[in-house]
Design a protein around this nucleic acid. Structure first.
Lengths: 137, 137
DNA sequence: TCAAACTACAACCACTTGGTAATATAGATA
DNA sequence: TATCTATATTACCAAGTGGTTGTAGTTTGA
């Protein structure tokens, strides 16, 4: 019974990280996760994703919303499509893209909230340091 | 009223993506998110993160667990530390690293589950295509 | 058929990055 | 002091990537 793919048939909700505890295990799964994160690791692509939050947009509309170059947007959309982040639909001359899985927005919100807390803590830390250095001037 | 930083004082749980609906808005916030995702977009760094799930490890232990080069691990750990993903603690000669925020594991589990579903759907799609082409040979 | 609009693609360049080898630094031990 | 261990740093190279320019293909309308 080959279990080279990710979806394990036996365990219900086994995940890669639990399996990582002992050894490296499943470099393929880590590669998939890395690829997914890599798609979201560029500001331009995040801009495109953000521009699609209200709903589907044509390439031209995305270009207008993001102020990115046409070829650039096209390249990013191809990457986003291949990664399964957005879906493609042709309507006449135009091609409309939309977020394939709304889960993405939950994820981004989660990350954003976590980063907000982190930045806030860093700011407090810096304020503490500066007040310490200035000694209540 | 300067609001260049991420943490908005007024709205309680406002996030960058909601603000993105109308215009681009807050490229700094998108940059922070992109940087965070970039840290997790490499297999080697995910290996390191996975190796730290059971708890803190010294650099040597991380090297043994991941089979990566020493300089390479050191470089990745520096990046992970600067990103706030792991924390650093010196104990004698050794330096121990651990995950700074367990939220990271929830996030990875979430992504992993979503990717599992996605891969599973793709497999079903491929099976459907192949059975169609073979016409129940 | 011709032109215009929309999108995709290829080639190119500048820049970044992962990995490695060599070296540096600091603590522990003899 | 000399040596060994553990970690960090530097320099370097090969590979990958974002952005741009130019071009090709496709659809719509005159």
């Amino acid at each position: 019974m080959p279990t080279k793919t990710i979806a394990k048939p036996s365990a219900s909700t086994s995940n890669a990280l639990n399996q990582c505890e002992t050894s490296q295990l499943s470099p393929a799964a880590l590669g998939l996760m890395a690829d997914f994160f890599k798609v979201l690791s560029e500001v331009s692509r995040l801009q495109i994703v953000c521009s699609l939050k209200p709903g589907a947009k044509s390439v031209t509309e995305i270009i207008e919303a993001t102020a990115l170059g046409q070829a650039n947007v096209s390249k990013h959309l191809k990457m986003l499509t291949q990664a399964g982040v957005v879906s493609r639909e042709q309507r006449g001359v135009s091609v409309y893209y939309q977020i394939a899985n709304p889960f993405l927005f939950e994820l981004c919100d989660l990350v954003y909230d976590a980063l907000s807390v982190q930045v806030q803590q860093q700011n407090q830390h810096l304020e503490g340091l500066s007040s310490f250095r200035q000694a209540r001037k």
